[in-house]
Design a protein around this nucleic acid. Structure first.
Lengths: 389, 389
DNA sequence: ACGGTATTGTTGGCGCACCCAACATATGGG
DNA sequence: CCCATATGTTGGGTGCGCCAACAATACCGT
């Protein structure tokens, strides 16, 4: 596994005349994030010269990163402009270990999931098992594309530099060098992150946080509450990659003992009240939407109150533009949005409150796969500035 | 007051061939942050070519941003290399309104406070008063330098775009357009921020957070607890500039009702126990260092426990490299460092805990002045990339 | 005193990325 | 069929950084 260059502020672009972020990366990022666009559009949006855009696109095509399609057939005055889009031949392998399965997928540079393998285990897989499962689908993952790397999203604390899983309670892992193991097993470069961090990356790319540069993301899954932060348009990883753990924030609703946010806001308690043994997010969402029950309603409001307390502190600390609620937190929110908003309005500092909007996550079950792949694509896009390639 | 360019990710360096951050800014930033250095040193550190460094330094001299001194007389083999340092003629006006005074200072690009005017008011000044006081010292602030702008550090919520003070409880201000007023009164460009945000900028530049890129800063002053966050080497301002308000974080030590962090960690209660009417930070620090008293000691430990709870959640959320404690929080910490560390160790997630070091702030009373000026210098350094000038 | 070695500033030539202007190409409308 | 409009393409210019060779200044040994 490759070490992430620390990119210190005082460091220099040693030895090369070219700054680390060129207009090549600018265009590639635009097409990656914003989808297909005509050369003319890119010219307008980028402010670059027509001829420059032409040269840059040609170079990106030469490197196999984008392809050019025939112009939009909607007839307009003037010479038609070819459509530039991400090459379907550039892809990443996304790996997401969960409590009862390991999901492996091929995601292309456009963000489309091209293949998905859900390897059920029925029990929390060991790291070695996970690696075996990935190795097992590697052949089946072959296709008309090249894998640029492997993106790993783990429900736990993962060291960003080498993919060492420090602690993943629901997988019962401690200090498992999964990143290194996957790198050796696949020969691919491995980029690793916490699952919620991958999630917020995806929501920022294609979801509910697309147009925001300051984002607070909270996700509720079977394995608790995780979070991700985007500041100045960049994912906050922290010193070693452990940022975003606000499921353990201490929260104390009025008159109650303080407990971790996860203890108050519990997916399991909702399932119990709904009489569901275990359920996918879709089923849970549906139930939360339809079931009328006094006890359930009371629990929902209690959980929203606790959530508001946790979110309040983070909103005051970070002054985000947008708060995105994913997983069952989104379903909770949808059931009584005004309740959460009211609680937040009453408690957050007014100026910070006024600049934030709270929304439900927009992406579905592919969220983590897209986010994990994005870890790889960030690297690919960065590297587009290098002369070599 | 000039609007801060939003600098969206998708935006481009429209119209210019040069990327927004050139090696010109790189060198200027190095000399600004790291102090004087010989050309040879700059060459080694930057990885740039000798001739390039020569050309860049010449250009910086031409623009009046740096000056070159005679080489270090310590005899070494080889041709002596001239020393490059920030020009003493480039300065910023720093303005810090407080509850009983308005401090105005001239700070030069090297970070030295060249003039300081403390205009006592004896009561919280109004915004109009503050502007008058600044206008009053403007003549006296003249000297062998040029003012590149005005940096404003306010104990409260300040909108970054225009310096509108949304709420400054201790000044009893609400929605005072101080930034605009100062801009009109002085003709200078105004950059504004919360005081703790200015503080962390200064600590990051010259103080206890110099070598860290992920910093959590908490400051305890007469006007409560403020904070600042640095991520990836950049100050986190949030969507509108209100980031860093973690004095209002809810905190509940075991068995106690949750209250705001500020309610638990209180400068006033320390003064009461010490029998001091009001005291400067220096006096308070000294007293905390020397006075042996059981009730005081108990209070100190209680406050540290509460502080640990607040810091714990932020450490888990942000995984910083360093936590810097300023003002009386630093004094508290120094009195019983092990107590705070122990409490944190017991509560923070282990991996996040292992990657963080807690230290006391290193800068003294000039902190806010240097930080406010830095708001201006950041802009100056950015602009060094523009061809014109 | 003098030449040798080491380090660094300086100069001229080159490459690369971008801009601009002019021209070529492709469309819709009279 | 020709014109107006919009856009790709080509050739030349500019700015910034690299490199190599040379000039300047130090220490050192004889």
């Amino acid at each position: 596994m490759t070490t992430v260059p620390s990119d210190l502020l005082t460091a220099s672009r040693a030895g090369t005349a070219r700054p680390s972020t060129t207009n090549l990366t600018l265009l590639l990022e635009r097409v990656h994030r914003g989808g297909p666009a005509s050369r003319a559009q890119l010219t307008r949006e980028s402010g670059l010269n027509r001829s420059t855009v032409g040269a840059l696109v040609t170079e990106l095509v030469r490197r196999g990163l984008v392809v050019e399609d025939d112009p939009d057939p909607t007839r307009q005055v003037g010479r038609p402009s070819p459509i530039v889009r991400c090459s379907p031949e550039v892809a990443a392998l996304a790996v997401v270990p969960e409590t009862d399965a390991v999901t492996v997928a091929v995601v292309d540079l456009a963000g489309a999931v091209r293949r998905r393998f859900r390897c059920e285990t029925g029990h929390p897989p060991s790291a070695a098992e996970a690696v075996e499962l990935v190795r097992g689908v590697l052949d089946a993952a072959a296709g008309p594309w090249q894998l640029a790397g492997l993106g790993l999203a783990v429900p736990g604390l993962v060291r960003a530099t080498d993919g060492l899983v420090r602690w993943a309670p629901h997988l019962e892992w401690r200090d498992e060098p999964l990143g290194t193991m996957l790198g050796e097993a696949t020969g691919l470069e491995v980029l690793a992150a916490n699952d919620a961090n991958a999630g917020v990356l995806a929501e920022h790319l294609f979801g509910a946080a697309q147009d925001a540069t300051q984002v607070l993301y909270l996700n509720g899954g079977p394995s608790g509450i995780g979070g991700g932060i985007i500041i100045n348009g960049e994912l906050v990883m922290g010193a070693e990659g452990y940022a975003g753990e606000f499921g353990h924030t201490q929260v104390a609703p009025p008159g109650a003992e303080p407990k971790e946010l996860e203890a108050w806001v519990s997916r399991q308690r909702l399932l119990d009240l709904l009489g569901l043994e275990s359920a996918s997010d879709d089923v849970l969402t549906d139930a939360l939407h339809h079931v009328e029950d006094e006890a359930l309603q009371a629990e929902v409001l209690r959980q929203l109150d606790a959530l508001a307390l946790g979110v309040r502190d983070m909103v005051n600390a970070l002054n985000p533009q947008r708060v995105v609620l994913g997983g069952f937190l989104g379903s909770l929110f949808e059931r009584a949005p005004e309740h959460l908003l009211q609680a937040l309005r009453a408690q957050a500092l007014r100026p910070s409150w006024e600049s934030v909007s709270v929304v439900r996550a927009a992406l579905g079950s592919d969220l983590l796969l897209v986010g994990a792949a994005e870890l790889v694509f960030q690297r690919v896009i960065e590297r587009a500035s290098l002369t070599a390639a």
